[in-house]
């Protein structure tokens, strides 16, 4: 492929890149994993069944807000009423999806792996023109903070779902199974991913000029900064955990697996 790195006056090098390492491995793996997740999540969001196995509710369907939700799964009420005829997951997935789509880490991941802009550092991208995030629709990436606020609400909801997992199939408290652990781990990873977000770092203190005048916010900023350094790790772990939690509930709901109960 011819290089778009060339321009009048620059050193003439025909190759798209002179990198001799396997620079394509990382974007290829990212593409593969994200593609599989999107396919799986889309299928599950439209499937509209096998998302509730008492007392566990799949994170893809939580909160379940339509009257068509499986009996016992609407812990926060059926606020959407009965006019909603599609899968209840489609009512709420825009928020976690928007949070990940506008996430500063995922932007790097999919710009590189899907849009090849650039596929790797010092590897020419295939596009002739580039305007970055200055125009619609990519200028909407600036709304990330609002998805962050929504994600905080979802963290509370999913944590409550995990707490509800300390019941048995008859709704009695004081029990626990492997599903409880799965939902707890998922809620914890999603919370850490959310709190490590760059917008969170900005909101809690990053936008300040004088840290010394705001010691509490400065302390919070240092905590979030520590988490933020591992934002990529939490992004991947929480992506896997949410898919695993959903798959686990589906296995239980379809009787393909029986939930091991601890007590």
């Amino acid at each position: 492929m011819s290089s778009v790195t060339s321009a009048p006056g620059r050193a003439e090098v025909e190759a798209r890149t002179l990198r001799s390492d396997r620079w394509w491995v990382s974007p290829a793996v990212t593409f593969g994993v994200l593609f599989l997740f999107v396919v799986y999540a889309t299928w599950r969001a439209f499937e509209d069944r096998h998302y509730f196995a008492e007392p566990y509710l799949s994170p893809f369907y939580s909160p379940c807000l339509a009257t068509s939700c499986a009996p016992g799964s609407s812990d926060f009420g059926a606020a959407a009423g009965d006019w909603w005829r599609l899968s209840p997951a489609l009512l709420i997935l825009v928020f976690p999806l928007g949070f990940r789509l506008t996430c500063y880490y995922y932007r790097k991941a999919y710009y590189r792996a899907f849009w090849l802009s650039p596929p790797a550092c010092a590897v020419a991208e295939p596009h002739r023109r580039y305007s970055g995030e200055t125009r619609f629709p990519l200028v909407l990436q600036n709304a990330h903070r609002y998805f962050f606020y929504a994600a905080l609400v979802f963290n509370v909801i999913l944590t409550w779902d995990a707490i509800l997992g300390f019941r048995n199939e008859d709704g009695e408290w004081g029990h626990m199974g492997l599903g409880t652990v799965v939902l707890l781990a998922n809620a914890a990873l999603l919370t850490v991913y959310t709190l490590s977000c760059h917008s969170c770092r900005h909101v809690v203190g990053g936008r300040l000029k004088h840290f010394s005048r705001h010691p509490v916010r400065y302390r919070l900023w240092t905590y979030v900064s520590r988490l933020n350094a591992r934002h990529m790790l939490f992004a991947w772990l929480s992506l896997f955990s949410v898919a695993i939690a959903d798959l686990y509930v589906r296995l239980l709901a379809t009787d393909m697996f029986s939930d091991p109960r601890f007590f």
């Binding site: 790097k108 710009y111 650039p118 550092c121 970055g132």
Partner: peptide, 17 residues
């Protein structure tokens, strides 16, 4: 944003690398 073009950056982090 308007004079220095920070909106064109798409966060692919090669500068940091």
């Amino acid at each position: 944003q308007e004079q220095h073009g920070i909106g064109m950056c798409n966060i692919t982090k090669c500068c940091s690398e």
